[in-house]
Design a protein around this nucleic acid. Structure first.
Length: 234
DNA sequence: TCATTAAGCGTTG
DNA sequence: CAACGCTTAATGA
C-alpha cells in the first residue's frame, strides 16, 4: 500500500518533525538542541480543541501528525473554516508576535499529534536566527495569499471550485512541504474544511475525478494534476 | 424550480 | 467498523 503522505503516523517523531522543518535547516547543531528542549508534544483526539479563541497564546504550534482545522465564529452563529493544517504545518506565530489572545479555534479533524514550542524559545529563535525570521516572513506572506485566494474563490466560484481550492491549499509547498500526491483525508473532513456537506463533497470529487484532476480512493484522494486543480479552484 | 442538506441505510475496504 | 455511495424528504433562494 503506497500510503506515504500526510498523516502516515507512527513514523514521524517530534525530533524528525523539527529537523524536517524548513526553518530548522539554518540552525547549528547547538541551536537545534536548544530549540528541541523548548518544544514538547501533545496528543489531541479527533473532534477535540487544540486551542480555543480567547485563550492566552503561550506556544507556537506545529502538526507532527494528523489534520487540524482553524475556525472562527460568525455573527450568524455558524462557524467558518479559515484553513486546514496538515502534518508539517506550523501556525500561531501571529498572536505570538503580538502578544495577544488566540484569534480562532483550532480543532483536530482526526487524532493528531501537536508540537508546542514555548514562547521563550520562539522569541529566542526570533532574536538569533535570520533563517527563522525569513521563514516567518515567507510563511506569513504565503498565508496572506492563500486567504485572499480563498475569499475570491468563495465569492466568485461554485462549489466544485471551492472544493478544489480547499484541497490545493493543503498542497502548498511553502506552508506544508511534506505533503505528497496522495492525501489521506476522508470526504467528511473535506466537507468540514470547505463548509460543504459530505454528499456534496462526494459529488464534486466525482466531477473532479472525471475531469482528470484526481482519483478518489478509500480514505483519501490521489492528486493527478495539481496545477490543473489550482487553475480550476480559481 | 433547483441546489443543497440532514438523516438514514446498504455496501465496501 | 469507519468510510463510501446513494436515496429521500425538508428547506430555502
Amino acid at each position: 500500500m503506497a500510503d506515504h503522505s500526510i498523516g502516515n503516523a507512527h513514523a514521524t517523531t517530534l525530533g524528525d518533525m523539527l529537523r524536517a522543518s524548513q526553518w530548522a535547516s539554518g540552525l547549528t547543531a547547538g541551536e537545534l538542541t536548544r530549540v528541541e528542549q523548548g518544544v514538547f508534544e501533545k496528543q489531541v483526539p479527533a473532534g477535540d480543541f487544540v486551542c480555543r479563541k480567547g485563550e492566552p497564546v503561550e506556544h507556537w504550534l506545529g502538526v507532527i501528525d494528523g489534520l487540524l482545522k482553524l475556525t472562527c465564529d460568525l455573527a450568524s452563529g455558524k462557524t467558518a473554516a479559515l484553513a486546514g493544517i496538515p502534518a508539517g504545518g506550523w501556525f500561531g506565530e501571529g498572536s505570538l508576535l503580538k502578544t495577544e489572545a488566540r484569534r480562532y479555534d483550532v480543532i483536530a479533524l482526526r487524532d493528531s499529534r501537536i508540537a508546542l514550542m514555548r514562547r521563550a524559545t520562539f522569541h529566542w529563535l526570533l532574536d538569533h536566527s535570520i533563517a527563522f525570521n525569513r521563514f516567518l516572513l515567507t510563511q506569513l506572506n504565503e498565508r496572506l495569499g492563500q486567504f485572499i485566494g480563498q475569499i475570491e474563490s468563495d465569492r466568485l466560484h461554485d462549489t466544485d471550485a471551492r472544493i478544489a481550492r480547499s484541497l490545493t491549499t493543503l498542497f502548498n509547498p511553502v506552508l506544508y512541504p511534506g505533503t505528497g500526491t496522495r492525501l489521506k483525508i476522508c470526504q467528511e473532513e473535506i466537507g468540514s474544511l470547505a463548509g460543504i456537506s459530505r454528499q456534496r463533497v462526494n459529488l464534486s470529487l466525482k466531477k473532479l475525478e472525471q475531469a482528470g484532476y484526481l482519483s478518489v480512493g478509500y480514505r483519501g484522494v490521489n492528486i493527478l494534476d495539481l496545477e490543473g486543480l489550482r487553475r480550476f479552484g480559481g
